[in-house]
Design a binder for these strands. Structure first.
Length: 793
RNA sequence: GGUCCCAUGGUCUAGUGGUUAUGACAUCUCGUUUACACCGAGAAGAUCGCAGGUUCGAUCCCUGCUGGGACCACCA
């Protein structure tokens, strides 16, 4: 028999093109089917290698899109790119060697747009299409598109009019490297060792010195308050007295606050504007003076005298030197410290007072938790992450960023009248820098806002952008709330949180029915993959080596919300599966050449049994898929394919199909045809290429669908005899016992035997004795206690 | 400090209030040429993390502990 070699590359290429040409995955808005819509995470397009983690994550919910399509839904599945915000800016600055501060905003934005479009095009081909993702490409969106900008600006106007969005001068978290405000969610912990410095302050009224411990001596010029714990007997006498700040000589009164830890340092703490979050809290609570000493780039300002222009680190050193000379630096201790850092550049954040826009969150904590409970979380425990975060929020959401590439904040300000001027809804999207606006009251030219929105301001409306809220409002109404949000757990506090917030404030409902938290990939040792650690694994290399379907097979082993250590072995297993499926299919169709798809008049018992088992498996697989248990579905389907279908059933019917004619042959052909088709369909969401190849090559002529991926979920429509399962299992058990005997006797599986079986069993297997003989090599079957006799030759 | 997740043969993993506790990889033995050596059959290998409790009965439910991971808070 001529070998039909499996050529994965050629298969992948062929069907990728076919799907696109035939628009297999196109969304039909006129369809009568139930819509299943997926709110997909728009990636930052970046060229270069594709990380396995990302490839897995994106493929995981893509499998669900295929499952839902097969289960009879009209699937609304949009690709998108998040090309708005800091990463793009940085990419452009680095790639083109320019500085945003030396380029005009509109010029810079044009460059960003051009660069991101280029990268996105590459990304679509090299990632999405390579992985066989079944998006409707006509639905592609980008977060910097004018439609997305319009959505973000519209949401802003609506929130402002509801008073859920306000502008205020506030101390905000600040990244001195990016020179922008940051949201609480953009801050990550940074562990480091620092020095705790014990510094002597003079008392105004006496010659006594008071020692205060601080990690940030550079903030001495900003010292506006000194606190002790009211229960601290040792420092009690200080309360109400005034201290002189070394070097800078301002006089500061000592007050009390319960939150002072009397055992830390000397039990005396200085408050500066602003060294950390406690400073802000106490500054507000005790109504202290404001002495901001930091510029936006993290250098010290004119209030620091000699230290003006130095950065924080330089100033710290210089001030410590001076204190040392003045003999005020009593001692220094090593201190393990965790500080907030910008999640993008890892610079420790500072706190600066500026005018910013905020969206209210603190007032809505309870409502948001309620909304979160209307959504089904997969897995369920991920909801707690959301609730935990929501309960612990300490700030309203700051949405303005001092960057260039992003959605402009559509507002102008009149300083004289202290008025905020907003555009009309029909003027959106708008860049206030490009439109002259006059104050409606004093007619003076208003100052345009030069800030942009936090990227989450746009992303939090991904359902609105994906479903075309403003462009196709009928379609939007039909789809929203969406069926599923797919994302990873690290952005529950941002993407999931802000989306629920926006949906609550704008539409007073949940944004989607379900949130599916995908799998997070670790390296073989169970540690997170990081570029800096050098333990990253690249999906493109694996695909080159094993093929896309084998890669997706590995994706199919992942459990939602659980970490998955990467195991190359799984890809080997995947490739083995593909080969096995390929070979089994070739065998089946070799023997189906004269078969026309008809049902036989009578089904042989063992054929009935295999179909019965299949019908059970099909139901279980469907159930697993519907509960987002892809790994479970795969396991079931594979178990049937490998162990029931290949190892047993094919062996059993082999000889019958070689030698018999008429109904006995047709019966086997029917069972083979149906079983394999169901196997292909069950596996098609996970391994779409090979299943399509086999479907197109063999089934297409009898089946109506032009792709297996838009065919219906398999259904075994027939009545089974009551005890068919019992009889079938008896058959398999007996076969297994015979094989055991053969192995014990070191005989070949096809060696001939005389078989003796129990009378009862003999009765049960009455109608299957021919099949039993052919598979076991029995020349004769006798009744009696179980025995296998080998024929001497 | 708070919350959550995980713990099953050498490795990974399924699963259940009563099972000879699933499967894969690895190991060992045997076999095979009319689908497949990217194969088949079989064997060995697990006190189901530790200690209590509930129960007639617990790997499974509860409590505590240990170890691993995550999220958050504090951090002068």
């Amino acid at each position: 028999m001529a070998k039909n070699k499996l050529d994965l590359k050629q298969i992948e290429d062929k069907w990728r093109k076919y799907w696109e040409k035939e628009q297999i995955y196109k969304f039909n808005s006129n369809s009568k089917k139930l819509i299943y819509s997926i709110d997909t995470p728009p990636p930052y397009a970046s060229s270069g290698h594709l990380h396995v983690g990302h490839a897995l994550h994106y493929t995981q919910f893509e499998i669900m899109a295929r499952v839902m399509r097969q289960l009879g839904h009209e699937v609304y599945f949009t690709p998108g790119f998040d090309d708005n915000g800091l990463p793009t800016e940085k990419y452009v600055e680095e790639k083109l060697g320019i500085k945003k501060s030396k380029t005009s905003r509109s010029e810079f934005r044009k460059l960003c747009l051009k660069e991101s479009q280029k990268v996105e095009k590459e990304y679509i081909d090299s990632v999405f299409k390579t992985l066989g993702h079944s998006y409707d490409w006509d639905l592609l969106y980008t977060t910097i598109s004018s439609e997305a900008q319009k959505v973000a600006q519209m949401s802003f106007l609506k929130l402002v009019s509801k008073k859920d969005c306000y502008r205020k001068e506030e101390p905000v978290i600040w990244c001195p490297y990016h020179e922008t405000a940051l949201a609480q969610a953009e801050v990550e912990d940074l562990d480091r060792t620092t020095k705790l410095n014990y510094i002597d302050f003079d008392l105004v009224s006496s010659a006594k010195k008071i020692t205060i411990a601080t990690t940030r001596p550079e903030f001495l010029p900003a010292c506006v308050g000194i606190f002790v714990n009211p229960k601290d007997t040792k420092n009690k006498n200080l309360v109400g007295k005034e201290l002189v700040v070394p070097i800078f000589n301002q006089k500061v009164k000592v007050r009390t606050d319960e939150k002072v830890d009397k055992d830390f340092g000397t039990g005396v703490v200085m408050i500066c504007t602003f060294g950390d979050q406690t400073d802000i809290e106490w500054w507000k609570k005790h109504n202290l003076e404001l002495k901001p000493i930091l510029n936006q780039d993290g250098t010290l300002n004119e209030l620091t005298g000699d230290y003006e222009g130095l950065n924080v680190k330089e100033a710290r050193e210089k001030i410590l030197n001076k204190l040392e000379k003045e003999k005020r630096l009593k001692k220094q201790e090593e201190l393990q410290q965790t500080v907030g850092a910008c999640w993008r550049c890892n610079s420790p954040v500072e706190y600066i007072i500026t005018k910013q826009w905020f969206v209210k969150t603190l007032d809505y904590k309870k409502d948001l938790i309620k909304r979160g409970r209307e959504v089904k979380w997969i897995p369920e425990f991920m909801r707690l992450r959301f609730e935990n975060w929501t309960e612990n929020l300490g700030w309203d959401w700051i949405i303005s960023r001092q960057r260039y590439y992003g959605v402009p904040i559509p507002a102008w300000y009149c300083d004289d009248c202290n008025k905020i001027i907003l555009p009309k809804e029909n003027e959106l999207p708008i860049d206030p820098l490009e439109k002259e606006m006059h104050c409606p009251k004093c007619k003076k030219i208003a100052i345009p806002d030069s800030d942009v929105f936090d990227t989450w301001m746009t992303s939090s409306n991904s359902p609105e952008i994906a479903c075309r809220w403003l462009e196709k409002s009928n379609q939007y109404k039909k789809i929203a709330p969406m069926s599923l949000r797919a994302q990873s757990h690290d952005i529950i506090r941002t993407w999931a949180f802000y989306t629920i917030l926006k949906s609550h404030l704008l539409f007073n409902r949940k944004p989607w029915d379900k949130v599916m938290i995908g799998t997070y990939v670790l390296d073989e040792k169970g540690k997170g993959m990081h570029k800096s650690k050098g333990n990253s694994v690249w999906a493109d290399e694996l695909i080159e080596k094993y093929g896309v379907d084998a890669f997706r097979y590995w994706v199919g082993t992942a459990t939602m919300g659980t970490d998955l250590p990467f195991k190359e072995k799984e890809l080997v297993a995947g490739k083995k599966f593909l080969t096995k499926l390929w070979n089994a299919s070739n065998f089946v169709f070799m023997n189906l050449k004269d078969y026309d798809g008809k049902k036989p008049k009578k089904l042989e018992k063992i054929d009935q049994w295999v179909l019965y088992t299949l019908s059970e498996v099909v139901e279980r697989v469907k159930k697993s898929y519907l509960s987002y248990n892809i790994a479970g579905a795969k396991r079931e389907a594979e178990w049937f394919f490998w162990h029931i279908f290949c190892d047993n059933y094919l062996e059993i019917v082999k000889k019958r199909i070689y030698n018999e004619k008429g109904d006995k042959r047709i019966s086997a052909q029917y069972a083979l045809y149906q079983s394999l088709l169901a196997i292909l369909k069950m596996m098609s969401p996970i391994t779409p290429f090979i299943t399509e190849e086999i479907y197109q090559t063999y089934y297409k002529k009898n089946e109506k669908d032009k792709s297996i991926h838009i065919s219906e979920w398999p259904e075994i429509k027939m009545k089974f005899e009551k005890n068919i399962n019992k009889i079938g299992c008896n058959f398999i058990d007996t076969l297994s016992k015979i094989r055991q005997e053969k192995t014990k006797a070191n005989k070949a599986m096809n060696s001939e035997i005389i078989l003796t079986i129990d009378k009862g069993l003999f009765e049960d297997l009455k109608n299957m004795l021919e099949d039993l003989k052919s598979v076991s090599g029995a020349k004769e079957i006798k009744q009696g206690s179980f025995k296998v006799d080998f024929q001497e030759n």
